[in-house]
């Protein structure tokens, strides 16, 4: 890896503050002059850092007025993940989770194929809606075979994430395969997310595997976020 440049360090630190909620939507961040003085760095360095965050859509620079935080709907950083709930927590704000449905069913064709199990085996399903103070909403569908979490239906999913429960049950998840695509949504998803029927939306689906490569969790989330942020590095 190359040198960790000053402007990148500043950009990273400001980005963290935005994600952590220190600066929230509409906040004015310190002026270039203040930032330069605080960190003892040049104006040019500050400007470069701000340019990166502006390019990412996090900041909005208004001529003669200052720099403002623009994340009305929070971007998601796919790098640090602890399941999607982890991603949501990363949005930094109090996120309310409502469990709309939970229950068990037989795997059938769909889950039989996803988990590689018999169609008669039991699967626990859970549908939740997350909402934060800004109205950003996420609709999440989860499924796990009951044999991996025998008492899956006993937990209160407005408190626990499936990942918490896996930890308690000694199931270790070592890999997650995610897929991001744009889909057109209809009811009930559209109405639950406060969107028009036929609207385009980001759909993230994922399967999680344990140490033996078995698929132990399936997730699908619809996110009305405006954008996702992704960082790729060559090794």
């Amino acid at each position: 890896m190359g040198k960790y440049m000053l402007y990148q360090q500043l950009a990273d630190s400001l980005r963290d503050k935005i994600y952590e909620g220190t600066y929230t939507f509409g906040d004015k961040i310190p002026s270039e002059r203040t930032l330069a003085a605080t960190f003892g760095i040049s104006h040019l360095t500050v400007r470069k850092a701000l340019a990166i965050l502006e390019e990412e859509g996090l900041l909005d620079r208004r001529q003669g007025n200052g720099t403002f935080v623009r994340v009305q709907k929070h971007p998601v950083d796919m790098r640090h993940t602890d399941g999607f709930s982890g991603m949501l927590r990363q949005r930094g704000r109090a996120v309310a989770r409502k469990v709309l449905y939970s229950g068990t069913r037989q795997a059938g064709f769909k889950y039989g194929k996803i988990f590689g199990i018999e169609r008669e085996e039991e699967v626990f399903e859970c549908i939740s809606l997350f909402q934060d103070a800004d109205g950003a909403r996420i609709l999440e569908y989860n499924a796990v075979p009951c044999k991996y979490i025998p008492n899956a239906s006993d937990y209160d999913y407005s408190i626990y994430s499936l990942r918490d429960i896996y930890r308690r049950n000694d199931v270790e998840i070592v890999e997650e395969r995610q897929r991001l695509e744009i889909v057109r949504i209809y009811n009930p998803q559209a109405e639950l997310l406060g969107m028009e029927e036929g609207a385009d939306m980001l759909l993230l689906s994922a399967t999680s595997c344990d140490t033996q490569g078995k698929v132990v969790e399936w997730t699908k989330i619809y996110d009305n976020a405006e954008r996702m942020v992704f960082y790729a590095s060559t090794v």
Partner: peptide, 11 residues
């Protein structure tokens, strides 16, 4: 050599 890429994706 380009080593890193930051991507911002929206629909």
């Amino acid at each position: 050599r380009i080593r890193q890429q930051q991507q911002n994706i929206r629909a």
